[in-house]
Design a binder for these strands. Structure first.
Lengths: 158, 158
DNA sequence: ATAAGTGCAAATCATTTGCAATGTC
DNA sequence: GACATTGCAAATGATTTGCACTTAT
């Protein structure tokens, strides 16, 4: 089931490329497979590394040229955590309204949805005379276990 | 009253420098005056430009070296809107919980507070097992006037 | 055939840093 | 006088781009 969902997302991206008369090259196929087979957030650099494990010929330029296509298609979400490089989220189409909590200790990123926040946002937008198009909520936090035991549970799973 | 508040903030920053055994130079004094005399959000580049209007000798390096001091002191807030440069918010200490709405059309930044959102955030953090330390909520939006009349009200005031 | 895509290397651009000179405490 | 600070120019690091060659359609 999980797998089927991913395959469908890949299909959607390929359709997106075809609609724009863009070509499905070996390099793009590799990148697509990697991006939609992972559940993790990744950086351009990580994606390049993974792609090169499958095919050494994939270049940094191609990765950087493909990333904007992925975000344009709305199947991948670009995120800025104040670091000098961007993060990409391949689970975006499943949960287009999710928000992020980052552990200050281990940088683990936790996603969550909140309809409550969504509705407050729209309300605020209205009050200010705007139509809210998209939202980003980032919480920085420390996990409670860390404070109690001095060990961050998430360290391992990151 | 507005003016007094600003002067107090300057004072706080100078205290901060003194506590760290850092020196109060002409360049820093100029930067401090500019930063806390404005209500606008600014970039490093804008700050440099403003500073140079008062004293041509202020260098880019000094601006970039002073900015981290300002954010460390918690009197100025650094913000990332996904652009390749950062924005700085000099009103942070007045409203440490404020959130931002950016007009997609004119890049005008509107601030707002929301106790509702604050409390939901804490609730979510708890549920996930975290203690929320800080939060960033950014809304991208288009103003309603723009859609109706084709003119964005905020264009002028930006 | 033709227009899009690729790798490479060079270019950008915001930000950072080494260094010798200068200023503050 | 000791040590922080400055301006300058060079370095960094992520991302972008020009170009000549290659490939998908």
């Amino acid at each position: 089931m999980r797998t089927e969902a991913r395959e469908e997302t890949k299909r959607k991206f390929i359709d997106f490329l075809e609609e724009k008369n863009l070509r499905i090259t070996d390099q793009r196929r590799i990148i697509i497979d990697i991006v939609f087979d992972t559940e993790e957030h990744f950086t351009a650099d990580q994606l390049l590394e993974w792609a090169r494990q499958r095919d050494r010929s994939v270049s940094r330029a191609t990765v950087y040229r493909t990333l904007p296509l992925l975000t344009e298609s709305n199947l991948v979400h670009e995120m800025d955590f104040g670091k000098p490089y961007k993060f990409y989220d391949p689970n975006y189409s499943d949960h287009p309204n999710h928000n992020h909590l980052i552990c200050e200790n281990c940088e683990k990123i936790v996603e969550f949805d909140s309809e409550q926040i969504d509705s407050i946002e729209n309300e605020i937008g209205q009050k200010l005379g705007f139509t809210v198009k998209s939202q980003k909520l980032q919480l920085s936090a420390t996990c409670d276990k860390l404070k109690k035991s001095g060990v961050c549970d998430n360290k391992a799973s990151n």
